[in-house]
Design a protein around this nucleic acid. Structure first.
Length: 426
RNA sequence: GUGGGCGUAGCUCAGCCGGUAGAGCAUUCGGUUGUGGUCCGAAAUGUCGCGGGUUCGAUCCCCGUCGCUCACCCCA
């Protein structure tokens, strides 16, 4: 038992499985890169106001899930619970919105929420996200959705679903809110629920308690209140999704946990996961830029959960191969051979030939075992005879074939590169 | 924040009615003074989560505590 353990609720990725994390992170981001999105590397903490204002005072995220503390200068700091608010802050601060539009950015990293941990829910979790800011074209909505869809597909994921809805423009929401409030006013609700309804009545749609579900069954839904413009936009989004053959369903009662969403909103869920089935989600935000001190400008983006996507892949029994590779593994026998092997390793690496060796003066059998486990393509045993003749047998660990090669960086490099080219051309 | 389940070797777990611990995998070494994966053999590794109580005696029973885990809630 070690004396220390990681803080409660964090998920760590370590060998031999950590390559899964890299695979998922890079796979989810790839479609964004080829769509012209560029990296925005952000701080993991921000002025608390960025989230309090950006994410919204009615959200659980802000009211009870933020890691907030005072720094040494007495400033209130919060570890980022999501990516969009900070991204928008950076866009405004650095004037990205003053250049060519849309601003297309992606980010990736750790996020923090002080929740009770559970399967697929961690206090430090990982997301990739993108934002497209500056235009309201329905094509951009669908571009963002399709990038998420492609990301999941690229990883080989199958059992995921896309749900979409529209939260409309201000006019739509005002009209709906009026009717919804009077509907809720007729319900018998407990104190806490009523409080929540006051801050954001839409939240009641999300309640999982049977009695609330029952009473909300006939509640007016926002989709029926969309303004002409909002309805046209939403219809166009659906048409575009169909033209791209991206399957989706409309969820009239979908509620997102962040207050800034307007217009098109969407969620990806996976059917083989437990209670935490959401693997990604996002939507449009019309008011966020001005809320954070920028100009009136609409944007749309998503956040995809790396942790949950890994769980989803595992639930589908999708085997993620380790992409790491090693070309040569040296097994030195004796002190002089050890130094030669070491020097060869270093020299080969500068030529981008990956090489490793057995340390710790291990016996031949143990060292061969290590070579095998390293996943190297070739093993080279260097002992007295090799040192004397200046030639070494390279054994291919995959097929057992051997070849005698001069014990020099040049010849070893040539040999590995030749093999590389022939195996690539297959 | 509320509730259920579980804490024994690096990992997965066994341990009967209380008598101070085992297996498999992994690790290292040997069988084979120079060529791996299989097989056979051996070695090493534990405050039995922590604190208290009951008892001649607690991994086992009781209480507390911490941790993990699942669900509610919420969301990625």
């Amino acid at each position: 038992m070690s004396k220390f353990s990681a803080p409660k609720g964090v998920k760590e990725y370590f060998p031999p499985d950590s390559h899964k994390f890299e695979f998922v992170r890079d796979g989810l981001l790839f479609p964004a890169r080829v769509a012209g999105y560029q990296l925005l590397e952000l701080p993991v903490f921000e002025d608390t106001e960025v989230f309090a204002r950006g994410v919204g005072a009615s959200t659980d995220v802000v009211t009870k899930e933020m890691y907030t503390f005072d720094d040494r200068g007495g400033r209130s700091i919060t570890l980022r619970p999501e990516g969009t608010a900070g991204a928008i802050r950076a866009v405004i601060e650095h004037g990205l919105d003053k250049g060519q539009l849309p601003v297309k950015i992606f980010y990736q990293g750790a996020f923090f929420r002080a929740e009770r941990p559970q399967a697929g829910r961690y206090r430090q979790f990982y997301q990739v996200g993108i934002e497209a800011i500056g235009y309201q074209d329905p094509e951009i909505d669908v571009e963002v959705i399709s990038i998420a869809d492609q990301g999941y597909r690229k990883l080989g994921l199958k059992n995921f679903q896309l749900e979409i809805t529209s939260l409309g423009d201000l006019q739509s929401r005002t009209a709906h809110k009026k009717d919804l409030m009077s509907f809720i006013g007729k319900l018998k609700l407990d104190e806490a629920t009523l409080e929540r309804a006051k801050l954001n009545p839409l939240r009641l749609f999300d309640d999982k308690r049977e009695e609330i579900k029952q009473s909300m069954k006939d509640a007016p839904v926002l989709l029926d209140y969309l303004s002409k413009e909002s309805a046209a936009h939403f219809n166009r989004v659906q048409d575009l999704l169909k033209s791209l053959s991206i399957p989706f369903t409309i969820n009239k009662k979908m509620v997102r946990g962040l207050d800034y969403y307007t217009g098109t909103t969407f969620e990806f869920t996976h059917s083989l996961l437990g209670a935490q089935s959401g693997i990604g989600g996002g939507g449009r935000y019309d008011g966020l830029m001005s809320l954070l001190g920028g100009k009136e400008m609409s944007g749309i983006g998503f956040g995809l959960g790396i942790d949950r996507t890994i769980l989803a892949l595992e639930a589908e029994s999708i085997n993620i191969k380790n992409q790491n590779y090693l070309h040569i593994y040296f097994v030195p026998l004796g002190e002089t051979a050890k130094q030669t092997a070491f020097e060869l390793c270093v020299a080969l690496r500068t030529r981008e030939i990956s090489a490793d060796m057995a340390y710790g003066d291990r016996g031949l059998k143990g060292a061969m075992n290590a070579a095998d486990k390293s996943g190297a393509t070739f093993v080279a045993v260097i002992g007295d005879e090799e040192m004397k003749t200046g030639k070494v047998t390279l054994k291919n660990l995959r097929d057992g074939s051997t070849e005698l090669v001069n014990l020099s960086v040049e010849d070893l490099t040539r040999f590995v590169e030749k093999i590389r080219i022939t195996s690539k051309s297959k």
